[in-house]
Design a binder for these strands. Structure first.
Ligand SMILES: [Zn+2]
Ligand SMILES: [Zn+2]
Ligand SMILES: [Zn+2]
Ligand SMILES: [Zn+2]
Lengths: 170, 170
DNA sequence: TTGCAAACACTATAACATAACATTCTACCC
DNA sequence: GGGTAGAATGTTATGTTATAGTGTTTGCAA
């Protein structure tokens, strides 16, 4: 069992191969559930996103995608991204125009994204409580909330330490 | 004195002319403070954004901008937007790729945006408490937060009522 | 008035995303 | 198997958002 879902994941050391395999399995299961096909294209796009806990732009995916010596057109990548997002397997990071593989099984809604400005690592935190608080705040103005976007930019633990160290050295 | 800053602003009826004038005055003051110029271009862009409590895309601004019979290039609009944003006079609404005039004097940081999916009206709520909560949550993972993006999509009070009414009629 | 820095004008291009339509694949019925 | 409907893909083109680069004008001060 992985540490996925714990608050300091993915900052902690973990077996990322297992991490990837779990996500792929989860994707297969999700497709089953929805009577959809986990086609080679969709799998390939998801695998590229799973390679690291960092978001990729659609055109970065195009560039890295040389499966069977083909170079797919953007439209195809965007189709796969839309499909994966509709199943909650990936998320769009609006502040980066980029896409991230979801790592919280069964919690596709209500995430808070912590985006490192230096290394681009993204952590996806459970945010249900925060969202409830925001919904209540909205409701007190008469606003009916449907979807939420919460992204925090800053420094991940490793980059924060590195910069502290560099500052101390000078 | 306007109702600006109260939780149900701008949903409530208000004298929008006063609303605009206050924002312009605030912009002039902010430029003074920073030893910057409130040039005609910058003023014109801000005025277009102030026309309604809804965000405009940069290219919408280009289209509406026929000041002195000129049609400025996008670059010029983006320069004005960057300037105004640096002074906290406008905000970028990431989920819409659009720009909104700020209506919370003195609170350029820590806003929560409520974006109506139907009429595009945007309310800007004070979100300091929420941000503190998010910072604490981030910090418990070792993440150092710098900037925050909180956008909620849904229905404003008026649109929510309208849709309820339409559903009741059928 | 001369010189400097900020702002502007203009052109081009980068970066991100979708529309439209033809073709291929897949599941299912006969 | 052969036909067929719907899903997925391949391909081309275009739409949309944002920035880079370069030269000119403007405002201000020494
Ligand atoms: Zn991992
Ligand atoms: Zn980092
Ligand atoms: Zn107003
Ligand atoms: Zn509305």
């Amino acid at each position: 069992m992985s540490d996925r879902g714990k608050p300091d994941f993915p900052y902690r050391q973990h077996d990322h191969q297992v991490c990837i395999e779990e996500c792929i399995e989860r994707a297969e299961a999700a497709c089953m559930d929805h009577n959809e096909h986990f086609t080679e294209n969709r799998r390939a796009v998801l695998e590229l996103l799973l390679a690291g806990h960092r978001p990729l732009g659609a055109y970065e995916i195009v560039e890295q995608f040389d499966w069977k010596n083909r170079r797919p057109a953007p439209a195809q990548i965007y189709r796969a991204l839309a499909f994966l997002e509709s199943l909650g397997l990936i998320h769009r990071i609006a502040s980066r125009n980029a896409y991230l593989a979801c790592n919280r099984p069964g919690h596709q809604k209500g995430a808070i994204f912590l985006v490192c400005e230096r290394c681009e690592l993204v952590a996806e935190l459970e945010g249900t409580q925060m969202l409830t608080a925001i919904d209540n705040l909205s409701a007190s103005s008469g606003f009916v909330a449907h979807t939420h976007l919460i992204e925090v930019s800053g420094l991940c633990p490793a980059c924060s330490d590195t910069l502290d160290f560099e500052r101390a050295e000078t």
